[in-house]
Amino acid sequence: MITVDGVSTSYGGTTVLGPVSLRFPDHGITSLIGSNGAGKSTLLTTVGRLLVPDTGSVVLDGPDGPLDVHATRSRDVATALAVLRQENHFDLRLTVRELVSFGRFPHSRGRPGAEDERLVDQALDLLDLLDLQQRPIDQLSGGQRQRAHVAMVLAQDTRYVLLDEPLNNLDMKHAVRMMRRLRRAADDLGKSVVMVVHDVNFAARWSDHLIALRDGEVVAQGTPREMMRPRVLEAVFDTPVDVHEIDGRPVAVYFG
């Protein structure tokens, strides 16, 4: 369980988030939805301690009891929580395997053992990167690089995995595959995945829980079935939305 208590975050004097109080459920996939600028990424990165909030605290269940994300040594948080931002670019000639191996740094401190190699293999396998593992990352397509970064945070083997728009840059085939892989990470490896998803239909199809933000505040949350209603979605996105049932699943139609 991640407990967010009265968190507000600002950039250069403008508050873009909160104060927000909520709980992310344990296990499964939780998706943050909302319009551009609603504060989804800010919430995710604040929980992931890449941003420092002005007020409030974020507490999660660590390996040895409750752990305040912003007050604990970054090193200790890194074995309980992994966070991936949307844009990750560096001019380094690393192979995919080297990049994914960095995910083991919080555990190995740079001296990987057999267990570390096994978890790197597992992450590479889960994201279908075994064939590409010796390829330099600067020779990958945008989607492959995205997968490599997700593999890195999965190799970190933390209970909580926070992903900012993991479907960015992915076409429909790869977006579906990515969601299937994350579903496996959540179901088979028992991780709690929290992510920002732009497409509400993707979010509803693959998540267990949806949290909707608007203007820096949580306006609604619930199961996909509870959330996929025209009145809820219209309030969240401020645009007309129809919801149709297709093959027993709610699908939002919002193309105007």
């Binding site: 970054s74 090193r75 948080v77 074995t79 990750n88 740094f105």
Partner: peptide
């Protein structure tokens, strides 16, 4: 690897 990735890695 940059500030964000380094922070994530502890």
């Amino acid at each position: 690897l940059g500030r964000d990735v380094a922070t994530n890695l502890g």
